[in-house]
Structure formats: structure tokens, C-alpha cells
Design a protein around this nucleic acid. Structure first.
Length: 420
RNA sequence: GUGGGCGUAGUGUAGCGGUUAACACGUCAGGUUGUGGCCCUGAAGAUCGUGGGUUCAAAUCCCAUCGUCCACCCCA
């Protein structure tokens, strides 16, 4: 007895019956990206592991605990892509996209891999729709990227979403803010959790988004970065807000929003659904003005987001969104007599070449069985070839919606069926 | 990495110590002469996640293990 294979832990088979949901999201993503003038890019599912340790940040959870790393047979250290921004930036550099008119606007749909404990809305392989705008630092593109994400959700009919935004400064003002934050925490370390005591040393910004109840009172009183931004960052942030207001996108400034990837600078944002459970965030992103340089390029600003397709679908289902029904082929060719099979097979072939989707019933199945199959697929027409039809070269074309039936010559079927 | 719930045919469930493990949906085949959707009949399909233990007897109790779901954490 052989082993029962299962999909690896935390992975999902996307079966035919759920494809309409994926189509709805993918179609909307593609259309929204096109509307904003973004072009598609795809990058490999695995990369040099150091792309992520350098890009995403050595001390992030993604790199430290969640990245799938392996050596290939040539001894290369590789990693399954845990996120999309660093690879896209790598591609930008590798292909000299700085020679294109700036900024470059890109979008993608790609699987990401993170070794997490799976639960609702969290998988070891999940798919993201994302965009990146590289080569422009003005706040207008920050607003544009956020708006693109927001319009996607609107198009999909999602409601009850909250947009959280924050600014986490840049290399000019962040060191000073971090000192202020550390100074504030210095005499309160006995009141926060163990993780926070570590963060105090390794990654103080993350003190702000600690979910531990115990730390909340301390976080409440913490200085907000938005009060310590340098002039340039402060101006950038207020411009972003003005742009968002101009296009009617409501937001909430969340001083505790810092995000878990080290490359973020200035603008960070996240969209959260009203109902918790199945994860609190369906999409998020931010500006990464230092990333391209970190990866070996000239100083080049960038901003982008990623939004989880599985999480979008969870929320659509939760809100009883409607998507298109599955559609079967237009014609199901039923061969009543064994002798009719060749004619039936050829009819299906001719129909397809004429652009009509067609399926042939299985051999040795009764007429009734084949008709049942046609019905189960949601087919519009049954094209029946039996002894009589075979004898005079015709087809009995039955409209399964009203049950009407007519005799047609074999070569008339395509035109007849297309005319409806 | 931490904690909790659950693992019975493809799916959803019933059975919770005692002879052939039940039902629904689905699948397949039929319901007389070549025709689907409703209805009717029949069939196939489960070593009750796996391993060990308790017992005369275990799907039913215990332990372990794996899987899964949910929460924490993290994030999409």
C-alpha cells in the first residue's frame, strides 16, 4: 500500500470550483493596474538568499524564522521568495531600468513562501498582488499607490475597510526619534514583555506595534514619530494626506503602525477589514527609499504594496460577494452509436477550430449518461449523433435550456450555435 | 516557537465499549422503443489518521505521533 500524499502543510489546492473567485480578483487586479498605467513583471520563485537578508533585514521575523532557505546542488544559498519587493528591485537594477523614463510603474501576481504556523488566512504559500513604483520620491506616487490598492478593493465590492497610514521617517530623523523612544522606554523596561526588552536593543521601532496587553499602557504614552519627523519627512507626510483627501480616500493615522520589514522609510500603510479573525491585514506596504541603494544601486526611491489574494477572497466570501458562475463548454457532443464516435470527435474538433468550446461524451456511456454529463457541466447545447444522423450526415442539436431540438448538417452547427 | 479544538467513504455528518459502521450529497449503472435538470431503483466506495496500550470485546477509553483547524506571534 503506498503512502497517501497530501499537499504540504500550509499550502492550498485551488480547485475548479474556487477558480471563479481567483478570476474575479485577478481580473480586477489586472484591470486596476492597467487603469493606473502599470506594467506587469514576474520574478523567479527563488532568489539568492542574501537578497532577502540584506533587503528585508537581518533581524526581521521573515528572515530569521520564516524564510525557506536551501542549498542547491551547486552549493548556492537560495531562498524561496518570502516577499516581492526585494526581487522586483533586484530586477530593476539587473535590467538597468533606471534608463527607462522614471518612475517605473510595475505590478505582479506571485506566490510567496513563509514558514509560519498555518491558520485562517495564513499559509506557507500565499499569493500576492503587488505594485512597485521605483524612481520617484514625491508624495503623489505614495497617494497613487494607496489609491490603486483602494480602488481594487472598491472594484471587488469589499466594504468596511480601514486604511491606516503612518510615517516612520528617514535616515535624517529616525536616529533622533529612536533615541527619544529609547529614552522614553529606558525606565519602563520592567513593565514591558520580554520580546519588547529585546526589541529595545535590536529594533526599537517595533516596540510600538507589540500586541502584548501588558505593553499597551507604555505604548500609549510613547512619543509618536509623526511629532518628530524632520521637515522634509513632515512635509512629505502632509502632502500625502492632502492628496488622499483630494481624491476622497479616508484614512486613519496610526502611530503604532511600523511594519515588519526593515526597508521601509517615511510612508507606511495597511488596510484592515472590520471583522478580525482570518488575519487583521489584507494589504499593506510603504516607501523604501534606501532599498535600491542597499542592494547595490544608486540612491533611488521606491514605494509599493502587497495584498494577499487568499485574504481578499476570504473577505469577499464573508461579505457574500458574488462572482461569475462557472461556465461549461457551449456544446457537448453526444455519440449514441459506437459508429458515430469518429464523426462526433471530428465535429468537436471542427467546432473548436471555429472558436466554439466543445466536449465529447465518453465512449461506451449511454445516451442518457452523456446527456446527464452535459447538463452537469452547464452546457448550453447537446449535439447528438446517432445511427439516423450518421446515415444522413446530420446532427440533432438540442438546446438544453428549453429542450428544443433541430436537425442540422454537420457543418451548420458552429454557425447556428454562435448566432445565439 | 507557544496554547486549545478536532481527526469515521470524494464531501458533510451519525454512531461514543459488544455481532454485516449508518445517513445525505456526490460518483457509476438502470427506470423497456435513441435524449439532461425532478423523481425512483440499484451498485461501487471506509483496514473508523497512524502506532501502542487497557479490555473477553474499541470507531468508541488511555498514551504517543502525525495531520488539520483556531488563537498567540508575525504578516498578506
Amino acid at each position: 500500500m503506498s503512502k497517501q500524499y497530501q499537499a504540504p502543510r500550509g499550502t492550498l489546492d485551488v480547485l475548479p470550483e474556487v477558480q471563479p473567485w481567483w478570476d474575479a480578483v485577478l481580473d480586477a487586479a489586472r484591470a486596476t493596474a492597467a487603469l493606473f498605467g502599470y506594467e506587469r513583471i514576474e520574478t523567479p520563485m527563488f532568489e539568492d538568499a542574501s537578497l532577502f537578508t540584506r533587503g528585508v533585514g537581518e533581524v526581521t521575523d521573515i528572515v530569521q524564522k520564516e524564510m525557506y532557505v536551501f542549498k542547491d546542488r551547486g552549493g548556492q544559498d537560495l531562498a524561496l521568495r518570502p516577499e516581492g519587493t526585494a526581487p522586483v528591485c533586484r530586477a530593476y537594477l539587473e535590467h538597468g531600468m533606471h534608463n527607462l523614463p522614471q518612475p517605473v510603474r510595475l505590478w505582479y501576481v506571485m506566490p510567496n513562501f513563509r514558514y509560519d504556523r498555518p491558520q485562517a488566512g495564513r499559509y506557507r504559500e500565499h499569493h500576492q498582488f503587488g505594485v512597485e513604483v521605483i524612481g520617484e520620491e514625491g508624495a503623489a506616487v505614495d497617494a497613487e499607490v494607496i489609491e490603486l490598492l483602494w480602488r481594487l478593493y472598491e472594484r471587488l465590492g469589499l466594504s468596511g475597510l480601514t486604511l491606516h497610514i503612518n510615517s516612520i521617517g528617514d535616515r535624517n530623523c529616525r536616529p533622533a526619534y529612536l533615541e527619544t523612544l529609547r529614552a522614553y522606554y529606558a525606565d519602563k523596561l520592567d513593565r514591558v514583555c520580554e520580546d519588547c526588552r529585546k526589541r529595545y536593543d535590536t529594533n526599537p521601532l517595533r516596540l510600538l506595534d507589540c500586541k502584548n496587553e501588558r505593553c499597551h499602557p507604555v505604548i500609549e504614552g510613547a512619543p509618536a514619530f509623526t511629532d518628530y519627523l524632520c521637515d522634509a519627512c513632515g512635509e512629505h507626510f502632509s502632502q500625502l494626506r492632502a492628496y488622499l483627501e483630494a481624491v476622497g480616500i479616508g484614512y486613519s493615522i496610526n502611530p503604532r503602525l511600523v511594519r515588519g520589514l526593515d526597508y521601509y522609510t517615511r510612508t507606511v500603510f495597511e488596510v484592515q477589514p472590520r471583522e478580525e479573525g482570518g488575519q487583521s491585514s489584507i494589504g499593506g506596504g510603504g516607501r523604501y527609499d534606501g532599498l535600491i541603494e542597499e542592494l547595490g544601486g544608486r540612491p533611488t526611491p521606491g514605494i509599493g504594496f502587497g495584498t494577499g489574494i487568499e485574504r481578499i477572497i476570504i473577505n469577499m466570501k464573508r461579505q457574500s460577494a458574488k462572482v461569475a458562475d462557472r461556465t461549461g463548454p457551449l456544446v457537448f457532443v453526444v455519440c449514441q452509436a459506437a459508429a458515430a464516435r469518429t464523426a462526433g470527435y471530428k465535429l468537436a474538433s471542427d467546432l473548436r477550430r471555429a472558436g466554439v468550446a466543445a466536449v465529447v461524451g465518453a465512449a461506451d456511456r449511454s445516451l442518457k449518461s452523456q446527456m446527464r454529463h452535459a447538463d452537469a457541466l452547464g452546457t448550453r447545447y447537446g449535439a447528438i449523433i446517432g445511427e439516423r444522423e450518421l446515415a444522413d450526415g446530420t446532427v440533432a442539436l438540442k438546446d438544453l435550456r428549453d429542450g428544443s431540438q433541430e436537425a442540422l448538417a454537420l457543418d451548420e452547427v458552429a454557425a447556428r450555435v454562435k448566432s445565439t
